[in-house]
Amino acid sequence: MTAATPILAAPTLADFLRCARLRRNIDNDVLSQKKLAVLSNVSAPYINLLENNTPNVRKRPSRQKFAQIFCALSLTPEEIAHAYTLAEIKLPEPEGNTLPIFDRREQAYIDQLNPSLAGLVNEYWDVLVSNASYRDSFPGLAGIGNILLWFFEEESSQDVMMEWELEAELTVSWLRSRTALTPNNPRLLALFERLSQNETFMKMYSKTGIVTDRSSPVMLLNGSRILNVRLFPHPSEKGLLLFLATEAS
């Protein structure tokens, strides 16, 4: 008798997310759903539903939640594109001169902005996606995944940023404003617990003033690079910002 030809099963988002989580190690331990929930600011029950391919969740996926999970899993651009394909996320086309919608395959859109530096960040300064110009200009940031952690845990940040203290204080001030709005947010608490071990961060955080906007668009980088920086709010996802910087002529 001829053996039956095995049926090739189509890949699923549930299997992809589960495998990505299980291969992601934190302190030599496999990343649990609970730990992933803290890192991504997405509830553990929601992640469990995704990994079990629960129909109602799959039919109405949240783009922002997916982006946060993908960032926490440290997916490559190719993996992110594949995950969005599995999620079957459909995009409305951008209209007029408005910023394009960052729905499907945010990475593809961000890449199109090269050679400008572009990155999509959330309200806790997690870098969800970025292009090559952004990653090359801020070495180490892609690996650590969060601008605040990069400032205070990555020594190279002080070599990159010519006005390191000014830029760091602005970012810390933004975090302080978020603390007042969402004091019990799990992602915020996880960040603060980690950053509170840094003396410089704590000195900046203890200041009472709040500044959440740049007084000047100029950002100075090593190598006499002068950037004009702008932050655009995401047109549909509250709390997401597009960081866009161009080299000053």
Rank of each mutant, 00 (worst) to 15 (best):
T2E: 12
L191N: 02
L188C: 03
K203S: 12
L189F: 01
E123W: 11
E165G: 00
R225D: 08
P92T: 05
G119Q: 04
S196H: 10
F70D: 03
P100L: 04
R21T: 06
P6H: 01
L148Q: 01
N184R: 02
F201E: 08
F192T: 11
W164L: 00
E88T: 11
F192H: 06
N25S: 09
F16K: 04
A4G: 01
I26A: 08
P100E: 01
R176K: 15
I101M: 06
L149H: 10
N56G: 03
F16L: 14
C19I: 07
K34H: 12
F16S: 02
V42G: 03
N52L: 09
E163F: 07
E93Q: 14
A248Q: 15
I110C: 06
V218T: 07
L31H: 03
I47G: 01
R194A: 06
V211T: 08
R187P: 12
N25M: 15
N228S: 13
Y134V: 02
E88Y: 02
L175S: 02
E93H: 03
L231M: 09
L39Y: 14
M161C: 14
E155D: 11
Q112T: 11
K35G: 04
K203H: 10
N28D: 15
A67M: 13
E153M: 12
N122H: 05
S133Q: 13
C71L: 01
A180Y: 05
L220V: 06
Y205E: 01
K35F: 14
F192G: 01
R21D: 08
L36D: 06
E154W: 10
L148F: 07
L166D: 01
N53M: 08
S196R: 09
R23C: 14
N97G: 10
S40R: 11
K207P: 08
F16P: 08
L36Q: 06
R187C: 03
F192R: 11
S62Y: 07
L113R: 09
A180N: 07
L149E: 14
A9T: 10
E153L: 15
L128N: 11
S62W: 09
G239K: 04
Y46F: 15
D159T: 09
D15R: 06
S130T: 04
S177V: 11
R135S: 12
T54R: 13
V57R: 05
M204R: 02
N114A: 06
A72M: 10
R18T: 09
H82P: 01
S196N: 07
L241R: 09
E199N: 07
W125Q: 11
L148A: 07
S40Y: 10
R225Q: 14
I110S: 03
L8M: 13
